[in-house]
Amino acid sequence: MEETVRTVLQKAAELYGLSQAAEVSVALCDDATIHQLNRDFRKVDRPTDVLSFALNEGEEPEIVDGPAEELLGDIIISVDTLTRQAEEYGHSLERELAYLTIHGFLHLMGYDHETEDDKLEMRKEEEVVLSALGMNRS
């Protein structure tokens, strides 16, 4: 799983022109953990497949000393939900993990799916990355 996540994020960073210093944290968890996070941070009392916590949403102090890093944020993925969805959609576990990873990454980049237009734009971007990885739907 780690190699899939790393490959997806490296391809996404390349496609979106991020520097080699860009950093994303990814945690895999179970439904109980993601349910608690979803309830505590989004006020949604149910598990979900992926959560993203962008670090660039608030005002962060600029660090002058040390290497320039682009800290994008955290992606949390429920392996329980990932497994169910892979079976439900007829995807391999690797393909579903890649999808959830890029979905979380796009949230960190500022994409959302609150409106139908936003949802279509995000789906298009997901397919761009998945296609570049040879994991598109076709």
Rank of each mutant, 00 (worst) to 15 (best):
E3I: 00
V5W: 04
V5Q: 00
R6A: 11
R6V: 15
R6G: 07
T7I: 08
L9V: 08
Q10K: 07
Q10H: 11
K11W: 10
A12W: 08
A13H: 03
A13L: 06
L15A: 02
Y16T: 06
G17L: 00
L18Y: 04
L18K: 11
A21G: 02
E23N: 14
V24F: 09
V24S: 03
V26F: 14
C29K: 08
D31L: 00
H35T: 04
Q36Y: 13
L37C: 01
L37Q: 01
N38V: 11
K43V: 15
R46T: 12
P47H: 11
P47A: 14
P47G: 11
T48A: 05
T48Y: 11
V50G: 04
L51I: 14
S52I: 11
N56L: 12
E57C: 14
G58N: 09
G58R: 07
G58A: 08
E59N: 02
E59H: 00
E60M: 15
P61N: 05
D65G: 02
P67H: 06
A68G: 08
L72R: 05
L72H: 05
I77T: 03
S78F: 10
V79A: 09
T81K: 03
T81P: 06
T81V: 15
L82R: 09
L82G: 06
L82N: 06
T83I: 01
T83C: 04
R84C: 09
E87K: 04
E87H: 10
Y89W: 09
G90P: 00
H91Q: 13
E94K: 02
E94C: 01
R95M: 06
T101P: 05
T101G: 07
F105Q: 02
F105G: 02
G110A: 07
Y111I: 00
D112R: 11
D112Y: 15
T115I: 02
T115C: 01
E116L: 10
E116W: 13
D117S: 08
D118Q: 13
D118L: 08
L120G: 04
L120T: 07
R123D: 15
E125Q: 03
V129S: 12
V129I: 12
S131D: 15
L133I: 09
R137A: 15
S138L: 13
